Deep mutational scan, measured.
Amino acid sequence: MSIQHFRVALIPFFAAFCLPVFAHPETLVKVKDAEDQLGARVGYIELDLNSGKILESFRPEERFPMMSTFKVLLCGAVLSRVDAGQEQLGRRIHYSQNDLVEYSPVTEKHLTDGMTVRELCSAAITMSDNTAANLLLTTIGGPKELTAFLHNMGDHVTRLDRWEPELNEAIPNDERDTTMPAAMATTLRKLLTGELLTLASRQQLIDWMEADKVAGPLLRSALPAGWFIADKSGAGERGSRGIIAALGPDGKPSRIVVIYTTGSQATMDERNRQIAEIGASLIKHW
């Protein structure tokens, strides 16, 4: 067993022997301040990774656009098919120029040779490549099948209805392509620590998230040296922004954090800054 596999296998073990965790309302004060600064709703939840206990939450059962955070769930569904012998990570998928959609920095470079399922998941999570996500959605049967996968996990809230990039439209009061912070946090925890996926697939999923290259201005910008984070960000229309993450000190994750916002007129930089400040408060009061 590799060191990384050992780390993920012992996530519940280490967490069980940690000192009790206590909620700190100071972080919620910052979440509410972010709402004021952005002029928009902000949803927040913080779960203990081992027990699933909610440590703090704000608007945990209000719907927010998922945006690209759905790509972690998508690759979880792909990995479940791999575990069941219905898919192979090494299978190569070929596609054409007509398949390319807006923001496809990886797939646009491989029109000639195609990409493997493993490479597509890596591109979808680490670079948020939209064509990679659409190609992977095709392998599982489309958005409705991802929703069905989530329902089978016990998540009857999260739903995907459309493809990239239309799913980022974020129309107010439109339930399409949305989740709730509580539902997303619980589902992410199941994917990373539950028995739904094999140990190898859980490790692969967290490795992809740990290698995320496009979430630097968010929670990662607030992390002290030595902290662990595996995350996936999302951005959408109407001032929408979000991030889902597993993080913790001492090089291992111990909490799940989900943050979503929508309806702001603020710039992307300002949305990023507010999420980073929430992260800084979380870490300060850990």
Rank of each mutant, 00 (worst) to 15 (best):
H24P: 05
E26P: 13
K30G: 05
D36Q: 14
Q37V: 06
R41Y: 13
L47D: 00
L47Y: 10
D48C: 06
L49I: 15
L55Y: 10
S57H: 09
F58R: 14
R59H: 15
R59A: 05
P60R: 14
E61Y: 13
E62L: 08
M66A: 11
M66G: 06
S68Y: 01
T69D: 00
L74V: 14
L74G: 03
C75I: 14
C75E: 03
V78R: 01
L79D: 00
R81S: 06
V82F: 10
A84K: 14
G85S: 07
E87A: 15
R91N: 14
R92T: 09
Y95Q: 02
Q97E: 11
E102H: 06
Y103F: 06
S104V: 04
P105W: 05
K109N: 12
H110N: 06
M115K: 04
M115E: 04
T116P: 15
V117A: 04
E119Q: 08
L120M: 06
L120K: 00
I125S: 03
T126G: 06
A132T: 03
A133C: 14
A133V: 03
N134V: 03
L135P: 00
L135T: 11
T138W: 14
F149S: 14
F149Y: 09
L150M: 15
H151M: 08
N152P: 05
N152I: 12
M153G: 06
M153E: 06
D155T: 01
D155K: 00
V157I: 12
T158G: 05
E164C: 01
E164M: 00
P165Q: 06
E166D: 14
A170W: 06
E175Y: 13
E175K: 14
M180Y: 06
A183D: 06
M184R: 00
A185N: 00
T187D: 14
L188P: 00
L191Y: 08
L192N: 02
L192Y: 06
T193S: 13
T193A: 11
E195Y: 15
L199N: 06
R202H: 13
Q204R: 08
D207G: 11
W208E: 03
W208T: 03
E210Q: 15
K213T: 05
V214L: 14
V214C: 11
G216D: 06
P217I: 09
L218W: 03
R220F: 03
R220S: 04
S221D: 14
S221G: 13
A225D: 13
A225M: 06
W227I: 00
F228E: 04
F228V: 06
I229H: 01
A235P: 03
G236H: 02
E237G: 12
R238D: 13
R238E: 11
G239D: 03
I243Q: 03
I244G: 01
L247R: 01
P249G: 06
V258D: 00
Y260T: 05
T261R: 04
S264V: 09
Q265S: 08
R271S: 10
I275D: 02
I275Y: 15
E277D: 05
A280G: 11
W286H: 05
W286R: 02
